[in-house]
């Protein structure tokens, strides 16, 4: 199951909460303000690294660019809307709002 997160982890608990519900192997995609979670060396990098041990993690490139996020946590893949669609082809979707 694909989990999408669209809120900044600094203002909303969706990132920290969703982490408890992830099953091993579930991909996680950060979109919109959610992408602030993957900026390198922030308060949530350690939590993100824990997730990366068991789950593939993606961030929507256009949303990263829009927010000036150039350095992202190692292991996180930046994808385009096309890649978003490909993840949806492979997985049911759980959008944490």
């Amino acid at each position: 199951m694909l989990h999408t997160i669209n809120k900044s982890p600094f203002g909303n608990s969706s990132f920290e909460t969703s982490a408890r519900f992830l099953q091993p192997g579930d991909p996680v995609l950060f979109i919109e303000d959610g992408v602030y979670a993957v900026q390198a060396n922030n308060k949530f990098s350690a939590a993100l690294n824990e997730i990366l041990k068991n789950n593939p993690v993606y961030a929507l490139g256009p949303d990263l660019n829009a927010r000036g996020i150039a350095e992202i946590t190692a292991g996180v893949k930046s994808i385009e809307y096309e890649g978003f669609v490909e993840l949806v082809e492979e997985h049911q979707v759980n959008s944490w709002l």
Partner: peptide, 12 residues
């Protein structure tokens, strides 16, 4: 979380 993966649709 396990129940979520068994769903066809999850609506938040």
């Amino acid at each position: 979380g396990k129940l979520m993966t068994e769903q066809d649709v999850v609506v938040h």
